[in-house]
């Protein structure tokens, strides 16, 4: 089984994000970068599927600046076999990313593509679905599982995405409004992953060393024939509206009085 997994370099969600005074973007000086946490879950799932269905291979792909090679290396250190970087300096919209990935996929012909459901920088939640439609493939978004992350199944590192016995489809449990839905998707397919599919592994030191020797190929959007002109332009970035400062109340009686008489919500 050939599995392609996408990995994006994003601002660390634990960094303090501030808007630039000129309103063009956020301040990036002093901000830490890391792999998109949803993509790490996708990498973990790819590795579990590979190990449960040998012989298989996992390719980690990123679209981004030359620094994104760091996030590809982190996927390789977790255990992915090789990397591909579609080198693109500066911001591009999710549609351009989807069309770059489409070209890579048409060349690599994977059986399954695993992606985070969204990147925690622009929070778009569209790239996987766009890609599925461009390829004419089936999709299962928000992959999850019935078992909790504390369960024995999770501790045994069992894949939550299940490959059918005939290896022609995968069964995916999706976290949707109101409950959990199960879909069966014919391969090749796009699966985007949600938080509770698995707990990603840490890379061990020997594996970090080994990852440095794994191959990473560089590609260029232009050479792939992709026009990255955005369909969605960011005109302005602002800080969110601030909430008025609140007060501390000494006890429950004071709280009830405030909620009943002032705020009138109970």
């Amino acid at each position: 089984m050939k599995i392609l997994v996408t990995i994006k370099r994003v601002e660390d969600y634990e960094s303090k994000i501030k808007v630039k005074p000129d309103g063009t973007w956020i301040v990036t000086d002093g901000v830490n970068y890391r792999a998109n946490p949803f993509d790490e879950i996708a990498v973990e799932e790819a590795l579990r599927l590979r190990d449960a269905n040998m012989p298989s291979e996992v390719i980690a792909v990123s679209v981004g600046s030359e620094l994104s090679v760091n996030e590809i290396r982190s996927a390789l250190a977790m255990g992915a076999d090789k990397g591909i970087l579609v080198k693109q300096a500066g911001w591009v919209d999710s549609d351009a990313v989807a069309r770059c990935l489409q070209k890579v996929i048409e060349r690599e012909k994977p059986d399954l593509v695993l992606m985070g459901k969204q990147a925690v920088d622009v929070d778009d939640n569209v790239t996987g679905q766009l890609l599925a439609e461009y390829l004419g493939w089936g999709q299962a978004t928000f992959a999850s599982k019935h078992e909790s992350l504390e369960s024995a199944e999770e501790k045994a590192k069992k894949p939550g995405v299940k490959l059918a016995a005939d290896k022609a489809s995968v069964e995916v449990i999706r976290e949707i409004d109101g409950g959990l839905e199960t879909l069966s998707v014919k391969l090749p397919a796009i699966v985007t992953v949600d938080l509770r599919l698995n707990v990603p592994r840490y890379a061990s030191l020997p594996n970090i060393m080994k990852a440095k020797k794994k191959p990473v190929e560089e590609l260029d959007p232009k050479a792939l024939g992709v026009d990255v002109t955005p369909k969605v332009k960011v005109l302005k970035v602002e800080p969110p509206p601030a909430r008025a400062a609140g007060i501390k109340v000494p006890d429950v009686a004071a709280l009830v009085q405030k909620l009943h008489s002032d705020a009138k919500v109970i």
């Binding site: 808007v19 925690v120 920088d121 005109l235 970035v237």
Partner: peptide, 19 residues
Amino acid sequence: HFKRAMWAGNAVATVEVTT
């Protein structure tokens, strides 16, 4: 144009869809 949240709501972007 459209306003949307980014970076977990730490920024609000105004975007133009050009198509």
